[in-house]
Computed example of a mutant assay.
Amino acid sequence: MEIDLTTPALLFSAISLIMLAYTNRFMSYAQLVRALKEQYRANHSSVTAAQIANLRKRLYLTRAMQVTGTGSLLLCVVSMFFIYIQLYLVSIYIFGLAMVLLIISLAISVYEIYISVKALEIHLNDMDE
């Protein structure tokens, strides 16, 4: 099986958009961390502590999503280089690995969304009390 330069290049736009979404998510978490820190200093509530613990986990997951997404993009470029120097078999395996990293990044994203919903549930349960 032979691939050409356009095959790995197809993932560029998808990965770029995903990375933009991950960066926006990270920026909103940074704002939330600052707000929760001030809230926790003012009032040491168990709800705020639970939110902080949840947010810490989400930050680590976001970092893992960004690392695997960036790794995927990097391997796409490496794959293109190997296509350019006509090492097609190596490029196919590297491109396959790039797709695996992208799948892992998306799976982590789904898990992080699940945890984000838990954070909102904590917040809503606090309103019920």
Rank of each mutant, 00 (worst) to 15 (best):
L20E: 05
F26C: 08
I83P: 06
G71M: 15
E121W: 15
E38V: 13
R56Q: 05
T23W: 15
C76N: 09
D126C: 10
D126L: 01
I122T: 14
A35G: 02
Q86K: 15
V90D: 00
V47N: 11
I122L: 11
S13E: 12
M27W: 01
D4A: 05
I52S: 09
A64H: 07
S16N: 13
Y114W: 11
L20A: 11
V110I: 14
F95V: 00
R34C: 08
F26R: 07
L89Y: 15
N54K: 05
H44W: 11
F95G: 01
I122D: 09
Y88P: 06
I115L: 11
V67Q: 03
L75N: 02
I15Y: 09
S13Q: 08
R34G: 00
Q31N: 11
A42E: 15
M127Y: 15
S13C: 07
L75K: 05
Q86W: 08
L36Y: 00
K118H: 07
K37S: 11
P8I: 04
A9Y: 06
N43Y: 14
L124V: 09
F95R: 13
N54V: 11
I94H: 07
L59F: 06
L102N: 05
Q51I: 10
S105D: 02
E129D: 09
A53S: 12
A14D: 09
T6E: 15
Q86N: 14
N24V: 01
D128V: 15
V78S: 06
A50T: 03
L73I: 07
L120F: 04
H44G: 03
V47E: 12
A107V: 02
V110H: 07
E121A: 14
L74E: 02
F95Q: 04
A98Q: 10
P8R: 09
Y114R: 13
I3Q: 01
S72W: 01
I115Q: 15
F81P: 00
L106R: 02
L55V: 04
M80D: 01
